[in-house]
Write a protein that binds this DNA or RNA. Structure first.
Length: 292
DNA sequence: AAAAGCGTCAACCGCACAACA
DNA sequence: TTGTTGTGCGGTTGACGCTTT
């Protein structure tokens, strides 16, 4: 049976024709907001009726949680948030609500949309499955380092540790070193060390620490296209000790597969969403072919 | 200027599950 | 135990706006 009928608690003939669908009007938003302000959330079907809304309870709940709730954060996802999404998705897969719990103010719907429109777009460009291990490697090799760089730029350009929009006016950013150093290499002082700490702003409410695996202190070995690879792990920690969460286990495994990119990492405004350029794509393809 | 193509995102749908009578 | 209701989740759709042709 359709949800509309089941949730509406009345016969289809009675009320289905009266139920509104589609975009919410300002008036409906106001009704819903005011009702919840007075009576609180929950019992959505009853709420919809009592508030005088010709909507299903389900629709009201969705509108409230995804749009009207006061703590909803609007606007583009910050590099930090994108980074976190990539990492958590690599860990949990399409568990959008679970991922959303770690991004205060962001909804599962928003994260899901981000994944489908931005991340999967990159997968299409690479002509690989977005859920494949190859794509995961590509994300870790190319995308995450870029986001890390943006995080760095954000934190260094901001005296306070609040999020600022990423505004890269120059196509060329300072060169990024081989990324990451292999475990048996002596880290050059100019390069990012394996214990680099990056400060992330505004991540609060991280209480689900049990879900985050313990920090891996030793590199482990696994195979990619029959090549033995070492994984290096980078730590990213929350800047606020009171936030109660450290992003331990934020792993950038297997970046060493394709760490031969030297020199300039190109990034521009138009590439803000297109986190790897054509050179990266071709390089990734070539590496994939070599491995086959 | 108009049409077509494309990307984004709010909203909907189907399903699963928990709570309860 | 069974049926009903409420809620939550993930997948999908479609409207809308922007860009390209």
């Amino acid at each position: 049976m359709a949800n509309i009928n089941r949730n509406n608690m009345s016969s289809p003939m009675e009320e289905d024709s009266e139920l509104r669908r589609g975009p919410w009007t300002l008036e409906e938003d106001t009704l819903l907001t005011h009702y919840i302000a007075r009576h609180g959330e929950g019992r959505w079907n009853m709420l919809a009726k009592c508030a005088g809304l010709k909507r299903t309870g389900k629709s009201c709940r969705l509108r409230w949680l995804n749009y009207l709730k006061p703590d909803i954060k609007r606007g583009n996802l910050t590099p930090q948030e994108q980074l976190l999404i990539l990492e958590l998705h690599s860990k949990w897969g399409n568990k959008w609500s679970k991922i959303a719990q770690h991004l205060p103010g962001r909804t599962d719907n928003e994260i899901k949309n981000y994944w489908r429109t931005r991340v999967q777009k990159q997968a299409r460009q690479l002509n690989i499955e977005s859920n494949s291990k190859r794509f995961l490697d590509a994300v870790r090799c190319f995308w995450m380092p870029r986001l890390l760089q943006k995080v760095e730029q954000t934190s260094s350009s901001s005296s306070t540790k609040t999020s600022v929009p990423c505004q890269l006016s120059d196509r060329t950013v300072p060169s990024l070193p081989t990324f990451p150093p292999l475990a048996n290499q002596t880290p050059d002082s100019s390069i990012i060390t394996t214990e680099q700490t990056i400060y992330l702003p505004d991540f609060t409410n991280f209480s689900d620490q049990t879900e985050i695996p313990q920090h891996q202190t030793t590199p482990n070995i696994y195979n990619y296209n029959n090549q033995t690879l070492e994984q290096s792990y980078y730590n990213i920690e929350n800047s606020s000790s009171t936030a109660g969460y450290e992003m331990e286990g934020l792993s950038f495994a297997s970046m060493s597969t394709m760490d031969s990119i030297e020199g300039n990492w190109m990034m521009s405004n138009e590439m803000a969403d297109n986190l790897w350029n054509m050179d990266d794509i071709w390089q990734f393809r070539e590496l994939g072919e070599m491995g086959n």
